[in-house]
Amino acid sequence: MTSKTTIPVHLDINGRHHTLELEPRVTLLDALRDRLGLTGTKKGCDHGQCGACTVHVDGERVLACLTLAAQAEGRTITTIEGLAREGELHPVQAAFLEQDAFQCGYCTPGQIMSAVACIREGHAGSDEEIREYMAGNLCRCGAYPHIVAAVRQAALEVAS
């Protein structure tokens, strides 16, 4: 299924090592979704505008649609599928559930990945700050008040 223009790309995703034969133009997002079946990371706009594809690369949030897979080689990638540890939900995931912080759920993985980083960055100190630092993640269903509440709740739990 690939042409001769492919290169081997080694990706470390959620603690597992993958080697893919990819064209250099393949984005991290398409590699995750189409090559590895890790479809938890969503493609909303493919233009870096909606945040649905947010993943962590070396602990920092990045837009997988604007990142080539090859750029992530040798770095640690975490997706929504790798957030829960040993079946235990991450506090942000649990807070999203408890606060009913979503409807259709399509933006949710990106919101959660962004929220985890937002808290880690120390940008969840107030509702205002949460709104500002979560502004790159759109929710068309309009669940924003609950998303802010979930991030606030999770930030308190992480801090305690």
Binding site: G40, I80, L89, F96, L97, F102
Partner: peptide, 10 residues
């Protein structure tokens, strides 16, 4: 359907 949506399993 919440757990599937927050874990990426959906």
């Amino acid at each position: 359907d919440g757990p599937a949506k927050i874990t990426g399993a959906a």
